[in-house]
C-alpha cells in the first residue's frame, strides 16, 4: 500500500510539472489556433533567468518577478516580430516559426547563460512530508496548487470578462470578431504574453524539483504538448488532467512494469485514447465546413 502511495506521489509530482507546462499551450491555441513549440523555452527562460538573477545578487523574489516580466516580453516579441508578420500562413508554417524561435531562444540562452545544470531552493524547504509510509516534497504540492490556481484564474477570466470573451470570439472567427470591434491582433498579443508568463512561472516552480539548463525546454515542450493534446487542446482543465494522467502513467509503469519502457507506455496510452476519443478528453470536435 505504501508503495502504491509513493507511486501516486511520484505521478502527482511529475504530472503537475507536465500540467503546468501544458497550460501554456492552451491560451495561445485558444486565441490563434497555433501550437507554440517555443513554450518549453518560456519554461526554461523562467528558471534560468531566476537562477542567474539570484546569482547576480538579486533577492530571489525579485529575480523571479523579473524573470516572469522578461519572459512575458519575449512572448510578446515572438508574436509581434515573428508570428504576426506571417499572418495568413498555413498552420504548419506557423508551427515552423515557433520551432525556429525555440532553436533561436535555446541558442541565445547557451551564450547568455551557460550549459550547466542549475537548481533553485524550494519554497518550503527540502524536507519531505511523510504520509502513510510514503514521502512527497512540499514543492510538488506547490506546483500542483499553482496549476489549479492558474486553471481557475483562466476559467474566470475567459468566462467572466469582456477580454476573455474577445479571446473566444477571436478563436471562433477572426474576421467576425474584427467586424464586431475586437482588436484581434492585441488579443493574440495578449495570449502570447500570458502564455509566456505561465511558462515562466512554471519554470521557476519546477526548477527546485526537476533542475534546469539551457536545453531543458525541448523535452518539457514535448511532454506538455502531449498532455495538452491528451486533455483536448484549448481546454485548461484538460491540460491539467492530461498532464497528471501522463505523470501517473509514467510513475505506475515505472513502479509496476518496466522503468525502461515507462515513456513508451505513456505514449502508447495516448495513442489508444486518441484513437477512441479523437478530440482528446476535454476537447470539442471541429466541424469542417465545405
Amino acid at each position: 500500500m505504501a508503495e502504491l502511495l509513493q507511486f501516486v506521489f511520484s505521478g502527482l509530482t511529475v504530472g503537475a510539472i507536465y500540467a503546468l507546462v501544458a497550460l501554456g499551450f492552451t491560451l495561445i491555441y485558444k486565441a490563434s489556433d497555433i501550437i507554440n513549440f517555443a513554450q518549453g523555452e518560456f519554461v526554461m527562460l523562467g528558471g534560468m533567468m531566476t537562477v542567474f538573477g539570484a546569482q547576480a545578487g538579486l533577492p530571489l523574489p525579485v529575480a523571479a518577478l523579473l524573470a516572469v516580466i522578461l519572459t512575458t516580453a519575449v512572448g510578446l516579441a515572438l508574436h509581434r516580430f515573428a508570428v504576426a508578420p506571417a499572418r495568413g500562413a498555413t498552420p504548419v508554417a506557423l508551427i515552423m516559426i515557433t520551432i525556429g524561435a525555440s532553436i533561436f531562444l535555446r541558442g541565445v540562452a547557451q551564450i547568455v547563460f551557460d550549459k550547466r545544470f542549475h537548481s533553485l531552493p524550494s519554497l518550503f524547504g527540502g524536507d519531505p512530508i511523510k504520509f502513510g509510509g510514503a514521502a512527497i516534497l512540499p514543492q510538488s504540492l506547490v506546483v500542483l496548487a499553482s496549476a489549479t490556481i492558474i486553471v481557475v484564474v483562466l476559467w474566470l477570466f475567459i468566462d467572466r470578462t469582456m477580454l476573455g470573451k474577445a479571446v473566444i470570439a477571436t478563436a471562433a472567427n477572426r474576421l467576425a470578431a474584427r467586424l464586431i470591434g475586437v482588436d484581434t491582433r492585441s488579443i493574440v498579443d495578449f495570449s502570447f504574453a500570458v502564455s509566456a508568463a505561465i511558462g515562466a512561472i512554471a519554470g521557476i516552480l519546477i526548477t527546485p524539483i526537476a533542475l534546469t539548463s539551457y536545453d531543458a525546454g525541448t523535452l518539457l515542450a514535448l511532454k506538455g504538448f502531449a498532455a495538452a493534446m491528451l486533455g483536448g487542446i484549448g481546454s485548461a482543465p484538460g491540460a491539467v488532467v492530461g498532464g497528471l494522467l501522463i505523470g501517473m502513467i509514467e510513475a505506475m509503469s515505472a513502479g509496476y512494469f518496466s522503468s525502461n519502457y515507462k515513456d513508451a507506455v505513456a505514449f502508447l496510452i495516448i495513442l489508444v485514447v486518441l484513437i477512441f476519443i479523437p478530440q482528446g478528453l476535454f476537447g470539442r470536435a471541429k466541424v469542417e465546413r465545405v
Binding site: G88, M96, F104, Q110
Partner: peptide, 22 residues
C-alpha cells in the same frame, strides 16, 4: 561558432515569415 544555433533558428524564422509558402 557559438552563435550557430541562434542563427539557424533565426534563419528558419525569417524564411518562414518572408517565404511563407516555402
Amino acid at each position: 561558432h557559438e552563435y550557430e544555433q541562434a542563427l539557424l533558428g533565426l534563419i528558419v524564422m525569417v524564411f518562414m515569415i518572408f517565404l511563407r509558402r516555402g
